[in-house]
Amino acid sequence: MTTSVRPRSILTIFFLTVGLLTVLSALSLFYGAVPISRATVLASFHAFDAGNLQHQLVQEVRFPRLICAGLVGIALALSGTMMQGLTRNALADPSLLGITHGAGLGVALSLAFVSEHSFVTSLAFSFGGAALGTAVILLITVFARGRFSPVTLTVAGAALSALFSALSTGITLFHQVAQDLSFWYAGGLSGAKWAHVFVLLPVVLLGLLISLHIARSMTVLSLGEDVATGLGSSLTKVRLLGFCSIVLLAGVAVSVAGVIGFVGLIIPHISRFLVGTNYYLLLPVSALFGMTLLIASDLLARMINPPFETPLGAVTALVGVPYFLYLARRKELSV
């Protein structure tokens, strides 16, 4: 439980991040495929005119998209933090350990077998798939009990992802909906609407509350499982609640935004480096950073090749893979 940075510096970093977040949010509202003047964007907030198409565009497209990006970022960062803490593995990330591809399998099933495809069905199926993926990878962790190094677990996760994605590709090719699945896999927020916000918000809040509820046990767990048991934490309870929060957070993020990798990997690292392993501090800081990173990535996805959108998952992968490779070469990989 070492704190790498002094409290004053933490405050500085906090305010810097909030400042950056504000700038990025403003940019995502002002910038878009259709040029809209700043005055009009601002006017749409304080003097909304339903007849004005530009006002509509800001309020019904850009604003909900921004909120969605923020919430998805929070969800991904928190699920990554919980995942790394529970498996005590610095390489854990929902997208690396097969959870995201589990959710993908769920979406593939819903694309293939549910005739009236809607957001709610895809949400339900992707929750189911995420739960399946999380359950399998946690079972592997529990069964292996210490025999698996972080490296081995990540490799097992890659194999699991390969299995899930082979199954989903097979199903979607058979039912000729493969490209739908790929669009979804690519990840993106171009279709984000207020409806998505209303689903994301309560689920993310619930996930955050569950995570905070077991924050103390998670902090103790970072000292080692023996220490945690010795200090009176019930490992089963922590694992179960942690499992729930991961499934909720990863499932909802995947169902709204598709496969967005590496956010859940990078953010916990940066946050742990800054505030240490006190989860009461670590969780909110991760959430803040996750939000910032995802809003920045979404902005980048729109700016690289306008008016076309670069898949969001590809943007985060291009940022995340170098960091992952750096971690892969590092010696110490336990949290």
Partner: peptide, 10 residues
Amino acid sequence: LLVGVGINAL
């Protein structure tokens, strides 16, 4: 293998 996982993702 880990490097391979990263390259695959890229």
